[in-house]
């Protein structure tokens, strides 16, 4: 097994505890949310149809049909997703700083491994990316499960059989993490990866030059964001009409993406090999 895979496997195993907690949290809270919604809806059916003698059509007109899309506006459904996103964002710096500041200084060992230090960076990066992807996949599986629960508990007449995909497309929260097409998916995750790499570089600046590095790192992040949008800014400033077709603009951004990602990785490599200190 290559050193990268060994390190990735190792990082992943360190990550797994947090991950299991997140998985559990998402499932439990969302199930509570769903149960409450179903309970509430069925109580309403009992009240309006059972006691107030409303017809099914009248009820559906008034309260709507029950479908999985009901979930996407429930706070108990959205909150765990928010917490997961926050936890993963927190993990981006934490995955580095834990090696310096935890009860042990594992960074000594990591830097003394007979392998390229870039493997450490790639292992940490892969842990974050795979972490995000698997929590998204997990959420999708849960949605399918929730759909099953709905069709099992809500009678057909009251049920709106919205597909999981439709739900995701219509929800503004979910469509960020799960873009519809392959291209959109690649763009979203490509940008995410670039973002994580930029943060990693900023962290390594801080770890190399401490206070001065923290300052440089804090400048580096917005500087890279501006650089990425530079083509748009230039067009905005110097052109009266928009000079590019949509696909041309895409290639311009692709080039910017490559420049920033590769540049940031090269800078990280320089810092890891020459400047970083335990």
């Amino acid at each position: 097994m290559s050193n990268f895979l060994k390190l990735f496997n190792f990082e992943w195993n360190r990550f797994i505890k947090l991950y299991i907690i997140l998985f559990g949290l998402v499932f439990i809270v969302q199930m509570i949310g769903l149960s409450y919604l179903i309970y509430d809806y069925k109580a309403m059916i009992n009240l309006e149809i059972g006691k107030n003698h409303m017809s099914t059509e009248q009820f559906v007109d008034m309260y709507g049909m029950f479908g999985i899309d009901h979930l996407s506006i429930s706070i108990l459904f959205i909150a765990p997703i928010g917490i997961s996103v926050a936890a993963l964002l927190f993990y981006v710096p934490f995955i580095w700083y834990r090696d310096w500041f935890a009860r042990n200084t594992f960074i000594y060992r990591l830097f003394m491994l007979p392998t390229s230090r870039m493997n450490l960076l790639f292992a940490k990066l892969a842990t974050i990316i795979v972490g995000v992807l698997s929590i998204v996949a997990y959420q999708l599986i849960l949605l399918v499960l929730y759909k099953g629960i709905i069709s099992w508990t809500i009678p057909t007449a009251f049920r709106n059989d919205v597909s999981v995909l439709e739900m995701v497309m219509e929800s503004s929260y979910l469509s960020i993490v799960l873009p519809g097409g392959v291209m959109e998916f690649l763009v979203a995750y490509g940008l995410g990866t670039m973002f994580v790499i930029i943060i990693f570089t900023a962290i390594l600046m801080e770890r190399s030059f401490r206070w001065l590095g923290a300052f440089l790192g804090a400048l580096y992040i917005p500087a890279m964001a501006i650089t990425f949008y530079a083509p748009l800014i230039i067009i905005e400033l110097f052109y009266t009409s928009f000079p590019l077709y949509a696909n041309e603009l895409f290639y311009v951004f692709l080039v910017m993406w490559i420049i920033i990602t590769v540049g940031s990785l090269l800078l990280s490599r320089y810092l890891l090999n020459r400047k970083v200190t335990v």
Binding site: R14, N104, Y108
Partner: peptide, 11 residues
């Protein structure tokens, strides 16, 4: 090899 005055393994 180096044995620093600090733990080099995850505790």
């Amino acid at each position: 090899a180096y044995i620093p005055d600090t733990m080099t393994m995850i505790s």
